[in-house]
Amino acid sequence: MKNAEEIFEILKQQFGDSILVMDKDSPTEPIINIAPLQIHKIAAFLRETEGLKFDSLMCLSGVDDANGTKVKDADGYDTIQGGTLSVYYHLDSVELRHKITLKVSTDRENPQVESVENVWRCADWHEREAFDMYGIVFLNHSDLRRILMPYDWEAGYPLRKDYKNPEFYQGMKVPY
């Protein structure tokens, strides 16, 4: 069993610049920030290494940080330009009984994160959901399609803070 600080030190030693900072002051557990295009090898390391053995991805979730600048478009709606979208990974080791939270942040305009689908199999649908709701593209994912919204949904990504619902979908009126 290791605490977050020890895990952070091991990762820092192994991967150096790919590990950014650890956010210890969050009201939840400590969060380790990681570069978005390095997450796959770090995930594989966390899973396989003796003494870490993170065998379970409890949850993978997308977040719209909404930290860009707000711009009004022609119709008076707020749109957000710049800033980041994030992905959080909640890991657990059933064997060693310790937990850690990872976070990667990526550009809102071109959100790309490496897939961890072949490290934890359950990441497959979680990543599809994050893609469906936030438009985060998971590189090397084997089947990155929408999972909840209809496949032909063209109105964008519903859980982004500046999402605007369409008037019609397949001839059906959407607003109340």
């Binding site: 909840l148 919204m149 519903p158 999402y163 619902n165 059906m172 009126k173 959407v174 607003p175 109340y176």
Partner: peptide, 12 residues
């Protein structure tokens, strides 16, 4: 109001 995915009445 906020159900982006819900049809507002099957009679549509």
């Amino acid at each position: 109001e906020h159900g982006y995915h819900v049809l507002k009445g099957i009679d549509r």
